[in-house]
Amino acid sequence: MEARPAIRVEAPAVPAKKEGQLPVEQPELKMNAKSVNLWYGDAQALFDVSLEIFDKSVTALIGPSGCGKSTFLRCLDRMNDVIEGVRITGDIRLDGDDIYAPNVDPVQLRARVGMVFQKPNPFPKSIFENVAYGPRIHGLATSKTDLEEIVVHSLTKAGLFEEVKDRLQEPGTGLSGGQQQRLCIARAISVNPEVLLMDEPCSALDPIATAKIETLMDELKESLCMVIVTHSMQQAARVSQRTAFFHLGKLVEVDETTRIFTNPTDQRTQDYVTGRFG
């Protein structure tokens, strides 16, 4: 198999600190996973994964197929709860609170930690109702006017409103693939999540739609903590500030994205990003 070309990422120049200058503000820790193990029945899929995830930034999870990226992502909003035979050990916290504590309602957790899946999955409802669904069931709107404002704001934030403003009562399933994915993002952010998880959000999209989603990610990170799973190392290099490399269910290495692609510390990471395997 032909090796992929190495990903070239230019590390940004760090200006010298001037006398009397305030220190650069450190990102705030939003989620923290410690020693996470997961089994599907008797088969272990994650091995002792520990990862810090910071607010107002994008963390990319990369690695070969079947390495545990998506499995770990689903741990962050307890989506694995719905899979029979799954067992998880370890500790995952959101703002310091254990998301697997007995008193945590997974539905309320998923309002705080939204998710966008690999394949666009709009509800078989109108564009308006797709976005209005979450705010309505979570009681975020006290009137029809409030609900309309939330829908317009969410579609605008997802970069979709201008394209669909005259079609809000038409089915969401009638949109193009890229528009459907942005509709799913609008639906996810309509309940004001603090974290947005994205599992291969562009794998089914053409390059133009992918570019729109990546621009959207860049804008959303100003107000959200984001974690994306991607097979595209070019995408990870473009949109993320930190990158975590998974292999065979283990977190091999995590660091600033520029360092992962230009000067990784683990040989397995080096081999993967230069195309020697994967």
Rank of each mutant, 00 (worst) to 15 (best):
E2K: 12
A6S: 15
P12T: 02
P15N: 03
P15E: 04
P15T: 02
A16Q: 12
E19D: 15
P23H: 11
N32Q: 15
K34C: 06
S35P: 01
N37D: 15
N37E: 12
G41M: 04
A43D: 13
A45M: 14
S50G: 08
S50M: 13
E52H: 07
I53G: 07
D55R: 06
K56E: 15
A60Q: 04
S65H: 06
K69Y: 06
R74T: 08
R78P: 03
M79N: 09
N80Q: 09
V82T: 15
E84N: 07
V86H: 06
R87I: 05
T89C: 08
D95I: 04
Y100M: 02
V113R: 03
V113Y: 10
Q118V: 03
K119V: 14
K119G: 05
F123K: 09
V131M: 04
P135M: 09
H138Y: 14
G139K: 08
T142K: 14
K144T: 08
K144P: 00
T145K: 13
D146N: 13
L147N: 00
L155C: 07
T156Q: 12
K157G: 09
L160I: 08
F161C: 01
V164I: 09
D166N: 15
L168E: 13
L175T: 02
C184T: 06
C184Y: 07
C184M: 07
A186R: 00
I189D: 01
I189S: 01
N192S: 12
E200D: 06
P201D: 10
C202N: 09
L205R: 00
T210V: 04
A211P: 00
T215H: 14
L216S: 05
L216P: 03
D218S: 15
D218W: 06
L220D: 07
K221P: 12
E222T: 12
V229T: 00
V229F: 00
S232V: 04
Q235F: 00
A237R: 03
R238F: 01
R238Q: 04
Q241W: 05
R242L: 12
A244G: 13
F246Q: 01
F246R: 03
L248I: 07
K250I: 01
V254K: 09
E256D: 10
T257S: 15
T257I: 10
T258C: 07
D266P: 01
Q267D: 15
Y272R: 00
G275I: 00
R276D: 06
F277N: 04
